[in-house]
Every structure is written in structure tokens, then in C-alpha cells.
Design a protein around this nucleic acid. Sequence first.
DNA 1: ATTTTTTACTTCTATTTTGAAAGTAATCCA
DNA 2: TGGATTACTTTCAAAATAGAAGTAAAAAAT
Lengths: 141, 141
Amino acid sequence: MKKEFRSLCPIASTLDILGDKWSLVLIRDMLVREKKTFKAFSASEEGIATGILASRLKLLESFGLITKRKLPDNKKENIYLLTEKGIDLAPVIIEVTLWGDKYMRKYNPELKAYEKLKTDKASIISTLQENYRQMVAKIIV
Amino acid sequence: MKKEFRSLCPIASTLDILGDKWSLVLIRDMLVREKKTFKAFSASEEGIATGILASRLKLLESFGLITKRKLPDNKKENIYLLTEKGIDLAPVIIEVTLWGDKYMRKYNPELKAYEKLKTDKASIISTLQENYRQMVAKIIV
DNA sequence: ATTTTTTACTTCTATTTTGAAAGTAATCCA
DNA sequence: TGGATTACTTTCAAAATAGAAGTAAAAAAT
């Protein structure tokens, strides 16, 4: 769990913690697909190794992007939820999605389309965030 | 130079090429700081190793985010410039900057401030892109 | 004209990170 | 009570990264 930063630049500092192949994929799983458990993350199509998944969840938790809790009626499952800090990555997720949708199809022709995003970026972002907050509210009562 | 993708998701596919600690820092150097040469990238405060720099430039070029050329009057220096595809990462850069500015200061207290960004996101993005395009236009005549 | 410096790398080796598989402990379910 | 499920940890090989040093071509200095 490294906590040192390369520079005083907010981009570089953000990449010091999120700059890898998995962190934003996990944020996507949570925010867009509303995944909440280790098993659900583990099952996503990208096939993250369990060791890396465990270490990333720990890192994200240590930086306050997610919380880990158990629900009263289930002592086995851990529920991972985005904090506001994590939810606030929605604009980054959306911009990366738009860029990938526009430019990566050339290399990965079967990419799923995201037409709606082009229509109204700002409202898609707030809807995504609001939906997530409501889901969290239902879970933690 | 891996060119395989983990999934059909545009986010994951984008991270397959840009998901590391250095690629977006290089894009920042080009777009925001208008750096153009190997030496200039090498000199930035984050201290990228030359071997990694060379491999990243090669990767970015292979995916069409940057071009590499020599100017008529200088056979030694290589000039690296963002393509439109690379310039189109401006919204991602800006969103990452905003997020980092808001949330990373807690861990990296001396982070430089980016107040203007909060004022008018869209116009900052287009100004950044326009400035870059004009710089390129001057260089390549 | 020749030496020195600069630029853009490549190469080397050590360390760190990742990936794949297997193992473990606690809880849940039949 | 016994098997399945969940959430990990551990192990080990492979890949990526970091830091240092070396090289070749071009430019600048002498």
C-alpha cells in the first residue's frame, strides 16, 4: 500500500492511485453495473485475478473511494459501496467511455455502443450518480 | 506491444492502452505543457525512466494518438505531436485534474490549484485544444 | 577539422507487479 | 451434519517497471 506521490500535479497524483488496468474497471462495475460483492467483481468479463482484486479493493478503501460492510442478515458477504468520492468519478468514467467508444472500435470492432451518451452528457452523469445513491440508500437503510 | 483486449467494454479497452501510470502524464505534458521532445518529456518532474518513455511513445504512436517527425532544420530532434485522437483526450485530462484537485489534496497537500477549471469546464477544454492545434499548425507549417 | 556535447534512444539487471492456480477459513444451506 | 459458497490468502512464474549505463548520430564549440 504505497502512499507516496511523484509530483504536485493532480493528474499524476490521481494516477498514482488509479493509474492501472483495473481500478477504473472496478469503479465502472460498481457505478454502472451496481456490483457490490467480491464474487460479482470476480465474475466480470475481464477476469480479474482474485489476488489483484483483493489488493485493489483494499487500496480503494484506504483512499476512501469505497466502503466495506456486512449487512445484518448476512455475515458471509461483504458489501462494497462507492463513497461520494468514488461516485464523483462518474465524469471521468463517462469521458473515458466516450473516447473509447469513438476511437477504440477500430482496434476492438465488437465494442458495445453507447449512443445515448452523446446526446446529453451532463444528465447521463447525474442520472448515473443519482441511481447509485438511491441504490445505496436502499441497502444501508 | 500488446494489442489484445480484455472485453468489449470501451472503458476496459481504453484502459488496455492508457491504463498505466505514465500514458496520461505524457498526454498532459503534450497538451497542457506543450512538450514535444524526448528530452522535454524526460525532464518532467515525475522522472520517467528513459526505457519506459521510449516504449510509451512507441505505443501511443502505434495507436495513432501521437505522431513522430523531424523538422527540416534539425536532424537530431524528434518532434512528437498529438493527433486529433490524442487532442480528444482533453476532456479526460480535465476531469481527472478536477477530481484530483478536489480529492487528492488530503494526501498530497501541496498540490497546485486549478481554480479556473471550476469556472467553465467546456471552454477550458476547447481553449486547451485550440491552443494546441495552433501550436501544431505553427510547427508543421 | 576535431573534440565535446546533446539528443534519442537501447541494453542491462534488480525489483515490483501481475496473472493463474490452488488452498483456507468462516458462513450458509439442505 | 456435510457440502457448497464466499472471501479471501498464498504460491510461483511471467511480465512490467526503475535506475543505471552505454551507444550512435547530429550539432556545437574550439
